[in-house]
Design a protein around this nucleic acid. Structure first.
Lengths: 247, 247
DNA sequence: TAGTGGTCTAGACCACGAA
DNA sequence: TCGTGGTCTAGACCACTAA
């Protein structure tokens, strides 16, 4: 019964038990083959001396991430189609790394600008406030892949222009501005003269345009426009069926 | 204590309690404004005579769907940015409806064919097995939006060709083949002669191409290729940040 | 038959927000 | 101070799988 309940730890003084269990299991199955059994729930209960609900909470998170899959009556296993069940918010560096390609970049432009109407609205700042505008030509395995324009409120990222990182997202994490969610708007277009020259294609070559906003908690931290060579880049989106509202 | 535990109901003989609570709440907040308070967890415990964990399980699902948001110390509310946190698997009919447009279609082709290599692999059937091939020109508010080719294993959908539905997904649900998940591969292209004529654009006009596979549980039920007019259609993809593996 | 995950109970303490 | 969600306990029965 609840008589022995301990209650939640203060966030600042200790890590929650379900987080401990979750990170332990994440580490454990880090490089494991799909299909490898994870520890059973009752095993983890023994090891950590916690209740089963706590273990389930930990495993639920890993299942939601697509790292584990449960098979009733059999056990919990490293997920087979290890693909994400949810589209990950990743930067170019991370995404190309995950595709097994080597990302590199050439900075075309990096300066302070006054926020125009679109950028100001997207970043939720006032018109004309200073923003960092960083334009890069990005390569995968040395071949041009996309042209990317990134904008951040300059106030949020002091000194960024003086020491441009390779991965913006990694840098934002270091600054405690870790992006936690975002949204892409994807459409198609054809390369203009400038884009064509940079990407190494003919004018009129099809391109995939991705407009992104990312947020750290509720605050917008970055907006970007990326133009990909359609012949080199396909976007992959996992979908989940959710009961439709009564028509 | 566990003394009064009731255990799980057989799936066929009754709906689980957390599902009952979830659907009750879903109904309740159906058309509500963002920010409207949902019943508190303890209220639902009273109403349904269930344990709080059961109520939390129900609400967890709605939060994951992006329908509700929890604010510690305040309560549970209809989510503000009611946008999905996960991309929904929806058919054209459903998606256009959600965008407030009226979907219509013109069937260009509907017949049995022998599965070619690509379709056979995607549907996980043998080369040459009969498949339904259904090609439609799809309109939103009477304007051409996309050309769509759908393929299903004919064995799975007997009689489909004799009574073509308006919404394939709704029809699959009726046949107990409800798609539960899927994946889109998205890239850009330019309209060919045939596509241009159908979509009412010039040859070379940019188009968004979406290749989709959908699954009912583990079995592939449908593959499709859709070609959208890029000037009328933008794909929106919500993204979630997941801790990156140690570099 | 033993073990697994799925569901469920009836409590508990905590931190936080609003009054 | 009171109500809320967040965390946690120590059990229970069920359906299913594999030996």
């Amino acid at each position: 019964m609840g008589e022995a309940a301990v209650g939640a730890r203060p966030r600042s003084r200790g890590v929650h038990k379900h987080v401990q269990v979750r990170e332990y299991v994440r580490e454990l199955i880090g490089g494991a083959e799909p299909g490898t059994p994870a520890p059973s729930e009752r095993e983890l209960v023994q090891q950590f001396g916690v209740a089963r609900m706590t273990v389930r909470q930990a495993l639920d998170a890993l299942v939601a991430e697509g790292l584990l899959e449960r098979i009733p009556g059999r056990g919990t296993f490293v997920a087979h189609h290890r693909v994400d069940q949810v589209p990950r918010l990743q930067g170019f560096t991370e995404e190309m790394g995950r595709r097994g390609m080597t990302p590199t970049s050439r900075t075309l432009l990096a300066r302070l600008e006054a926020a125009g109407p679109g950028v100001a609205r997207a970043l939720d700042i006032n018109l004309g406030e200073p923003v960092v505008h960083w334009q890069r030509l990005r390569f995968a395995d040395s071949a041009p892949m996309c042209v990317q324009d990134v904008y951040c409120a300059s106030e949020l990222v002091p000194g960024l222009l003086e020491a441009l990182p390779e991965s913006l997202y990694a840098e934002l994490e270091r600054r405690d501005l870790e992006p936690t969610w975002g949204e892409d708007s994807v459409d198609a277009g054809v390369a203009g003269e400038q884009e064509a020259k940079l990407l190494g294609v003919a004018v009129g070559h099809p391109v995939l345009r991705v407009a992104r906003r990312t947020f750290s908690d509720k605050r917008p931290v970055e907006v970007s426009r990326s133009t990909y060579r359609a012949d080199r880049f396909t976007m992959w989106v996992p979908l989940t069926r959710i009961p439709q509202p009564r028509a």
